[in-house]
């Protein structure tokens, strides 16, 4: 069926009104503000914008702002590690839950509980889980380290330093500059599995069972079935999920806010957290700079989305 070739006023109107009334204005204003050092106590007007106009001043400042650079690299670090992990683990969970066994609905529901639990409760609990001294993660690591250590002693070998470190101390997690981000990623991936899993599950359920039957007739084992049937047919969902996860990853905020406040020494300070600090965390707020950071973030997301969109034909099955 060829599309109707006209502008569907009736269909577009509600969204258009909403966009023009409540979205276009704020977006335009934030773009304007990114070129100013607007004093937030000075009621916003065209004159106020004009008076505080500094051209590309905020963007030049970003160029020279070491904390921003750190936040940028931290964001990349987070996205590059957390997004693949989240996609991979949630895909595994979805594959496991995409079958019929007693209690499967209950387990699916369990995985969605983090989405209704207070993020403060989640964050604080993870702080305890990752507590280097009394948290269960390090307790387990120390126990495991000691087992390995005694094994080495048993063989009259010198224990490697890494094992000894694990047995006696273990990672400092949120209080250690190098371990804080891994700690955040652990918590964020854990909390994000449910949502992504649901999207994968939906994709999996849509795959026609006859494909598997045909593959089985051809003598394909479980692995071959996965590589040759499941993955290609699921690729549109993988694409959707990856795109959403990337956009979400670049805007990670909540758990960092609760768990580390961007520390220690800015080790978990990401772009959105830095922006939040500039817009609401310091006093008086620096809305102009915050807006500039927002537009920088936007530029990256936009570029990334365009690239993804272009690349999808290469690997997304139904797009080819």
């Amino acid at each position: 069926m060829s599309s109707y070739r006209r502008f569907p006023w009736l269909f577009i109107l509600p969204s258009l009104v909403g966009f023009l009334a409540f979205n276009a204005g704020p977006i335009l204003i934030s773009l304007l503000l990114s070129f100013t050092k607007w004093d937030i106590f000075n009621p916003l007007s065209l004159q106020a914008v004009k008076d505080s106009w500094i051209g590309f001043g905020n963007f030049v400042r970003m160029w020279q702002d070491p904390t921003l650079h750190k936040a940028f690299w931290n964001t990349l670090y987070y996205v590059l590690v957390a997004v693949p992990l989240e996609i991979f683990i949630s895909l595994l969970v979805a594959l496991g839950l995409n079958r019929d066994f007693p209690g499967v609905k209950l387990i699916r529901t369990l995985y969605l509980l983090p989405t209704v639990t207070s993020i403060v409760a989640i964050g604080l609990l993870w702080r305890w889980v990752l507590n280097p001294y009394v948290g269960p993660v390090n307790m387990f690591l120390r126990w495991a380290g000691r087992q390995v250590e005694s094994f080495f002693t048993f063989l009259h070998l010198k224990t490697p330093a890494a094992i000894h470190w694990l047995a006696s101390q273990g990672p400092g997690w949120l209080s250690d500059e190098h371990w804080a981000m891994p700690g955040i990623i652990l918590a964020a991936v854990w909390a994000g599995i449910g949502f992504r899993m649901l999207i994968f599950l939906a994709g999996l359920q849509n795959i026609d069972k006859t494909y598997y039957e045909a593959a089985a007739l051809d003598g394909a084992g479980p692995w071959q079935q996965f590589w040759n049937v499941t993955l290609p047919l699921l690729s549109p969902t993988v694409f959707l999920n990856t795109l959403l996860a990337l956009i979400g990853g670049f805007q990670v905020f909540g758990l960092i806010y609760v768990m580390t406040g961007g520390g220690p020494l800015d080790a978990t300070n990401v772009l959105l957290f830095y922006l939040y600090q500039k817009a609401f965390g310091i006093f008086p707020p620096d809305m102009g700079y915050a807006s500039a950071i927002a537009w920088l973030l936007f530029a990256f997301l936009f570029a990334l989305t365009v690239v993804q969109w272009q690349l999808r034909k290469r690997w997304v099955w139904e797009e080819a």
Partner: peptide
Amino acid sequence: KDYWTKITAMFAAG
């Protein structure tokens, strides 16, 4: 906890 966020917004709007 969010006192100043709200106060500054009100000032910004006059």
